[in-house]
Write a protein that binds this DNA or RNA. Structure first.
Lengths: 348, 348
DNA sequence: TTGAAAGCGCTAACAC
DNA sequence: GTGTTAGCGCTTTCAA
């Protein structure tokens, strides 16, 4: 149970450490004879370079900037702050500096301005929540010119020159919602899909959830009545009055965003206990309604883990030369009032 | 954006590296004056020791033994092999040697024999699946004498002198099953809880699942008929004939172990499509029946992650002096035919 | 083409 | 008490 070192290999092969290193890294400038001797030894043993020593040599520090929405404007992003903080604490000792930069998710200009600022810092990597497609494409170009590594999370925009995406399969998550709705809905009740406050940019992705939801029922060949509603937050009450009016028979509602608590509040205020709700994300308000049984299931997109993982990939790349996966899709967690605690504990 | 080193601190304080090191580690033998100078500098800056350098100094290797059931005897444990392999690959470069040791989960003697063998190796740590309570207590004592760090996973036995437990809250998972069953069961159908092939040792823990399941319904004040059946695998068919005979009306079944596929096979063979099944674990057979809609939900205990995390805690402790949490409970994942893929991908 | 040597940050042994 | 020094495994420079 001993571990081989370059020094040991050099001894075994009867050459110097330098030569072994050249062979290992295929740097050339090695005679056929020396190459042969070293290769022979390497074939015998299972050499694993000591990654600690390797990256210690690289005494430089790395700067990673995270560009994401301000959670005081949209609280969906709040868990990301914890994920970033966790990464900061964990990786500081390895010479990794992580800095968050917040933009206003309602304003394209804010997104552009923040990225412009980050650009001036010439970071080694950026991890972006690419809420705005067109602008992200432009900005990615500029980062590319700086040799900045670019990763994305949360929004599945396909962009060239980026290294990595961490997020969830939205279509799939819509199917999961359909499956759950199928289990809990009352016979003969109508089904409503509600999009709340989604602008055009985001809409493309949100629609994926709807598509998955509808496909699920389509494949089951259950031709239920499924209506889609696009609502603005300020007109919510009025519209819900219409949607949930008794004669329409809509009793099962799938809300495609974290704003489901707004609908839950509505049915809570009116004691509409026969309405079944399924939505997204573990906002405190959503958890509250989940425990009060106003929301039946939530799908957990785990933004905290998304951002943490996005950073972790970059760190492993810089420090240990690990490959960054092009795409990593997190599990689609189903949350009910009974297992919610186990998910909250997890993130400490 | 620069990172402080001991050398730099020594310069700033006007002392030598050695003195700084003594202050940092409170090794004493430092004059009040020197202590003061160094402390002052340390207060100014945010010094984070370079963990890579620190553990590089410690050139020793660590030996971790994992004691778990042979997955060819009970395939529940199969994912653990992957988790262990992942850990082996990931940590080999850091001088960590991980070795699995398999026992026959049906034989106490096998458990004892394997542990005896591991003892002779005097490992730095063991991670045990403590299937047998009494014997584990005895063996833990012996490991303790060797100064071996002892962690456990999967079975929540409370034992003194152990560092860590990684697993799932079984009571809670029973509640989750109850909650799900409540959602999918047909009105008026009877509910059955089936324990398959559990001996006395394991029974204590399995009973926790039953308790959670029953408590859920109790709290809802739904006084359904819930029957419990303890079945041996070889008498399964005969007994199921009785349990599922039409006149008893049992249409909803909670199987408390990964052996749920045996029940699924039964209802599949007989086309009993109105029977709702909920059970545990992502065995290939279970996944198969999940996709065939014979099993409605599975609860994922994630044995792979359990063992990986158990090892990871030990590694972080040895290499980076991180504290080992006394208990870490994994999330209780709810798996359906629609989100199963996202969980399988996760483990690559 | 090769070997020797320096040095990354930290620790610990050893002089003074 | 204190400073100096060697060395962990690896990379890289430089002289031969």
């Amino acid at each position: 149970m001993k571990t081989y070192t370059i020094k040991r290999i050099a001894e075994l092969a009867g050459v110097s450490k330098g030569t072994v290193d050249r062979v290992l890294h295929k740097r050339g400038k090695v005679s056929a004879k020396a190459l042969d001797k070293v290769s022979k030894v390497l074939k015998e043993i299972d050499y694993k370079p000591n990654l600690l020593a390797r990256s210690l040599k690289n005494t430089r520090t790395y700067h990673i900037c995270v560009v994401l929405p301000d959670s005081t404007i949209d609280s969906f992003w709040k868990p990301c702050n914890d994920g970033i903080q966790e990464a900061i604490d964990e990786f500081a000792s390895f010479g990794i500096f992580i800095e968050p930069f917040l933009f206003d998710p309602r304003e394209v200009d804010s997104f552009k301005k923040v990225n412009a600022k980050v650009l001036t810092m010439v970071p080694d990597a950026v991890l972006i929540a690419p809420l705005f497609h067109k602008e992200t494409v432009q900005i990615v170009h500029k980062y590319k010119n700086l040799n900045t590594v670019i990763s994305k999370f949360n929004n599945p925009v396909e962009i060239e020159n980026t290294q990595n995406f961490v997020g969830q399969d939205l279509y799939r998550s819509g199917r999961v919602a359909g499956n759950l709705m199928d289990a809990i809905r009352k016979k003969e009740s109508g089904i409503g899909i509600i999009h709340i406050d989604e602008d055009i940019e985001n809409a493309i992705y949100i629609k994926e959830k709807e598509r998955g939801f509808r496909d699920y029922f389509k494949e089951k060949e259950k031709s239920y009545q499924i209506e889609t509603y696009n609502l603005k937050e300020d007109e919510l009450k009025v519209k819900l009055n219409g949607i949930l009016s008794a004669n329409k028979g809509v009793k099962s509602i799938f809300v495609t965003t974290s704003k489901i608590h707004r609908v839950a509040q509505y049915i809570h205020d009116r004691n509409l206990d026969d309405v079944k709700l399924i939505g997204y994300d573990l906002l405190p308000e959503n958890i509250d309604f989940l425990l009060k049984k106003k929301i039946r299931f939530l799908i957990h997109q785990n933004p905290r883990k998304q951002v943490y993982l996005g950073i972790k990939f970059l760190v492993d790349f810089f420090l240990f030369d690990k490959k960054i996966p092009a795409k990593s899709l997190l599990p689609i967690d189903i949350i009910s009032s009974e297992n919610i605690a186990s998910y909250i504990d997890e993130s400490k």
